[in-house]
Simulated scan of single mutants.
Amino acid sequence: MNQTLKSADISRIIEMAWEDRTPFEAILQLYGLPEQEVIKLMRREMKAGSFRLWRARVSGRKTKHHALRDPGILRAYCPTQYKPR
């Protein structure tokens, strides 16, 4: 895994991994971490119970894997997700 990740980057990767509509490919493109490395990071950074919940949620989820997504979905997140503060 890329050892140069900053704390803010790790937090953002965790946030993206939790988001239902953010595919692992988006994390790979932004941070260079393939799915297996994201799983390792999540296992290391989260409590065991939280990690198990997350794995149960994302395993086989179509929206987390670009190849399984509906081709009509061209974005990684809902347009209303990021609102100005």
Rank of each mutant, 00 (worst) to 15 (best):
M46Y: 02
R52K: 14
M42E: 05
A17M: 03
Q29R: 11
R52A: 14
H66N: 08
I13W: 01
G49Y: 05
Q29W: 04
M16K: 03
V58K: 00
Y77G: 08
L68E: 00
C78T: 12
L33E: 10
Y77T: 12
R61D: 11
Q29Y: 06
K62I: 09
M16S: 05
E35H: 04
P71G: 06
G72E: 04
I14F: 05
Q36L: 10
S59N: 11
R52Y: 03
R57V: 00
T63S: 04
F24V: 00
E37C: 00
R55S: 06
L53S: 15
F24T: 00
E25I: 01
C78R: 11
K83N: 12
I39T: 11
W54M: 10
F51S: 09
I27E: 03
M16C: 07
V38W: 01
P23V: 00
E15N: 12
P34Y: 05
F51C: 14
I10D: 07
Q36D: 13
G49K: 13
Q36W: 11
K62D: 08
P79V: 12
R21Q: 07
R12M: 12
I73W: 01
R61F: 02
V58Q: 01
P34W: 02
M16P: 05
W54K: 10
Y77F: 09
A76F: 08
W18R: 08
G60K: 00
K40F: 11
S59P: 09
T80D: 13
L33A: 07
K40P: 01
R43Y: 07
L53G: 08
E35V: 02
A48L: 13
E25C: 06
M42D: 05
L74M: 04
L30V: 11
R21F: 05
G32C: 06
L30P: 13
G32K: 11
Q29I: 11
E15L: 15
K40V: 09
Q3A: 13
V58I: 04
G49L: 14
W18L: 14
A48I: 11
A8D: 12
E25L: 02
G72Y: 01
W54N: 00
Q36H: 13
Y31T: 04
E37F: 09
N2E: 15
K64Q: 02
T4A: 14
A56P: 04
I14N: 04
P71E: 08
W54C: 05
A67Y: 05
S50Y: 06
E37K: 04
A17Y: 02
R61K: 12
